[in-house]
């Protein structure tokens, strides 16, 4: 996979569904970052997420702009940004709302081994 070690931005619903499908099949932990261009705390987290993606090739990091993919954000009931959803085989296993970098690292570590 070319995207390994990177945060994958999903710009269309098709791309999102495709990445999600791939993630489910891989049985890896998927972390989805719901973000918005006008949200200051999201900009705060972007470099931290990129760093985590580089460090953890066994975790799939996806990024969804809530204005670009409005229907996805609505379906996933995202109201505050950034929201991080943790998925495993298509199931939501955890969620973090806010730029909470320590909690994000802790939860990723916990779900990677679980």
């Amino acid at each position: 996979m070319a995207e390994e070690g990177q945060v994958i931005s999903c710009h269309t619903v098709e791309a999102w569904n495709e990445q999600l499908q791939k993630g489910n099949e891989s049985k890896k932990l998927v972390v989805v970052d719901f973000t918005a261009s006008w949200c200051g705390p999201c900009r705060f987290m972007a470099p931290i997420l990129a760093e985590l993606a580089k460090k953890l090739p066994n975790v799939i990091f996806l990024k969804v702009d809530v204005d670009e993919l409005k229907t996805v954000a609505t379906d996933w009931a995202v109201e505050a940004m950034p929201t991080f959803m943790f998925l495993k085989e298509g199931k939501i296993v955890d969620k973090i709302v806010g730029a909470r970098k320590e909690e994000l690292q802790q939860k990723i570590t916990a779900h990677m081994v679980a």
Binding site: C39, P41, A80, V97, R100
Partner: peptide
């Protein structure tokens, strides 16, 4: 410094 933050449609809170 910033220790935690979140935003919604209306504003950002740090």
């Amino acid at each position: 410094t910033v220790v935690s933050a979140v935003g919604n449609r209306y504003f950002d809170a740090y």
